[in-house]
Amino acid sequence: MATSLFTGCVAKKIFTRAFIAAYKDHGISQKELANWIKLSLYFEDPTRTLKQGMIYYQTIPRYTELFQTGLCIFAFGYYTKQVRALQKYWLHEWIVTAILGRQTIDHYSRSPLIKYHDHSYITDDSIDDSLQKFIGVIEQTGPGYLYEEKQPVDREEVMESDEEESISNGQCRENTPRLKHCYSIEFLDRQDREIKLRITSDGLFNCRSFVRDLGFYLNCPSSIDSAHLEKLGPVKSEQSLQKYQLHYEQMVKLAEEITPACIEYLKQLHRQYPDTKTSSRFI
């Protein structure tokens, strides 16, 4: 195994099939993180072989919420298309913190408050019973927003002009139900209003919608406080690099470490979902 992604024919082959797992910090968008990796590789590349489109940032998972942190998988070359195509099937393991009885305009606990609701009647057993209703294939809509004069604080994506117009008129955008797969939910801890859960799901599962729906079952409007992605497919958070660690030597070492596991995982998904088509969206 070559020690550099840019040395010799073997290293070139490694580069075309290399993955990097990066930890997403608060307030850092996925595109900004991808650009950071591109710059780190370019300035450390002695041959300047890095070309536009070599690093793809629309891989897995796609973050749109400021409270979500955790693993991002970056793929290089050919395997990026497979990662994109199969992203919804990659196993996600979340650590989610929810606040019972805190109703906000967009179901995020740090957004403008609507009302605090009584939660004293909610027992641990009733939470356990409600959690069982979310295991398996479930129908889930987006979290939705209760639009007022203030926009939700955690939205990163620029909305289309027609959507912006509907928001200005106080209307909610269309929310179509979709089928999601939740494999397991573990009740980890509770401190007064705050509950902590471990959730394993597919790549489509929405943690904020889950907390909103859990509140419906408990008859107590609730909001999410944080969602940390601990594991993504075969890669765990302790294998990832934070932004300040994204430099050439560290990324080479990490890519060589996790690439075999990611490739084998992709092969398994291909065998399980043979009809999934590839995607070629890139920077």
Rank of each mutant, 00 (worst) to 15 (best):
S166H: 05
I199R: 02
R178Q: 12
D202W: 06
D154R: 10
E174S: 14
F210H: 08
E165D: 10
E157G: 02
R208P: 05
I195K: 02
H181K: 14
E194L: 07
S161E: 13
L179F: 08
Q191T: 10
R155C: 07
D162C: 01
T200Q: 15
S168A: 09
E165S: 07
C172V: 05
D202M: 04
R155E: 13
V211M: 10
N175Y: 08
R212A: 03
S161H: 04
S161I: 04
E160W: 02
Q171L: 14
L214H: 12
E194N: 02
E156F: 07
E186C: 09
Q191C: 09
Q191G: 00
D162T: 07
L197N: 04
Y183T: 09
E174G: 01
R212F: 12
R178P: 00
F210M: 09
R190D: 06
S209E: 02
E174Y: 14
E160A: 10
E174A: 14
S184T: 11
G203Q: 03
S184N: 15
D202I: 03
V153R: 06
K196A: 03
E165N: 10
R190T: 05
L204C: 06
V158F: 05
D162A: 06
L218G: 12
R198S: 08
I185Q: 05
E194A: 07
G203F: 06
P177H: 07
N219F: 15
E157F: 08
Y217I: 12
F205T: 01
L204E: 03
P177C: 07
N169I: 00
D189E: 14
I185W: 09
N206S: 12
I185T: 05
S209I: 06
L204A: 12
P152L: 04
V158R: 10
R212C: 02
M159P: 00
S184F: 10
R155N: 07
I167K: 06
I185Y: 08
R155W: 11
D213I: 11
Q191N: 14
E186A: 11
D192H: 12
I199E: 01
I195Y: 04
R208S: 02
I185N: 03
E165T: 09
L188N: 02
T176C: 01
R190F: 10
S201W: 09
E186P: 00
R178W: 01
E156G: 01
E157M: 08
N169C: 02
C182R: 07
L179H: 07
N169K: 14
Y217A: 15
I185R: 05
K196H: 04
R190P: 05
E186Y: 11
S166C: 02
G203S: 03
L218V: 13
F210T: 05
G215W: 11
H181N: 12
